[in-house]
């Protein structure tokens, strides 16, 4: 039994499958088509020869009939490579001592289910735990052993210190050999422009990106706790405020922030979704299937 993998969730995920969005590159034959032309068995189309094409791929029968050079192209079936980036900064430990799941626990549940699901489809999944930098990187794998390693890593993971997604993405780029699906689970208390500046290399390399913004309901709408001394979970800085006086402004600020993230994501053809830790994470799978 793994802490973050519920058998009920596994039963439900068995019927899930990536859709058109998931047409990504892999090196194992699988159920996912790739536009990368290859020499697999499934014919795709004829294409007129252009200088520089591999002469080995010329269909000489067609040439014999028409006296024109045509190439035969085939679609290559490849496996999915999914890279999961899990924010393990201290802020993801919010809320502490609460009946609700912390953001890290919620993200871990989702990451575990996603890893199981990808591996169950014979695809490959990698896991990157980060806070202000990469804390742990598990390279892509599709074996049971790899899944066990991912689940064990998630179980023993604890919130770390401050966050720097940009730094993490910059460092992780050389580690990801092949393009695939990039899933980032974070509370994204970061400047959206900086975040997407760091994502640009991934986008240019053809990664399909999912940004899953995980917030506690108490962060979406500040709880009225009376005058309180707010202590930063990452920096231990404190601030004494009346939450009720800031509730409206905070909510407006969060909405502005998410609106900004969504707009930048849409401009770069990336997927963005905000989810509360009280919502079921299957909605995120739904987004990945579309």
């Amino acid at each position: 039994m793994y802490k973050f993998l519920d058998p009920a969730d596994i039963r439900r995920l068995k019927n899930y499958e990536f859709g058109a969005k998931a047409m990504v590159e892999g090196y194992l034959s699988g159920r996912h088509r790739s536009r990368q032309r290859g020499s697999s068995i499934e014919f795709h189309e004829f294409r007129q020869y252009t200088p520089g094409d591999d002469l080995a791929r010329v269909d000489w029968r067609v040439f014999a009939r028409n006296d024109k050079l045509f190439l035969r192209t085939f679609e290559q079936e490849t496996n999915l490579e999914c890279h999961v980036f899990l924010d393990c900064s201290a802020s993801m430990g919010f809320p502490e001592r609460s009946a609700r799941l912390s953001k890290l626990e919620y993200a871990s549940f989702f990451a575990a289910a996603l890893a199981w699901w990808v591996i169950s489809k014979n695809d490959r999944v990698s896991l990157t735990l980060f806070d202000h930098g990469i804390r742990k990187f598990l390279p892509p794998g599709s074996t049971r052993k790899h899944l066990h390693e991912i689940l064990s890593t998630l179980e023993h993971n604890t919130p770390g210190s401050g966050t720097s997604i940009a730094e993490t993405l910059a460092r992780a780029l050389p580690l990801l050999k092949r393009k695939g699906t990039l899933v980032i689970l974070s509370d994204f208390f970061e400047d959206p422009a900086t975040l997407f500046k760091a994502l640009n290399p991934y986008i240019h390399r053809g990664f399909r990106i999912h940004l899953f913004h995980i917030l506690d309901p108490g962060e979406i709408q500040l709880e009225d706790r009376g005058l309180s001394r707010f202590i930063d979970m990452e920096s231990d800085a404190n601030l004494t405020v009346h939450p009720h006086a800031l509730r409206e402004s905070w909510h407006r600020e969060i909405l502005d922030h998410t609106r900004s993230l969504r707009a930048l994501a849409a401009a770069r053809h990336a997927d963005y979704a905000l989810t509360a830790t009280t919502d079921p994470y299957f909605t995120l799978f739904d987004r990945m299937r579309d």
Partner: peptide, 16 residues
Amino acid sequence: PPAYRFSNIDFLRRVM
């Protein structure tokens, strides 16, 4: 006032 550990003070401070 009672202490309350919160995820992001910088963000709160900006709002404030």
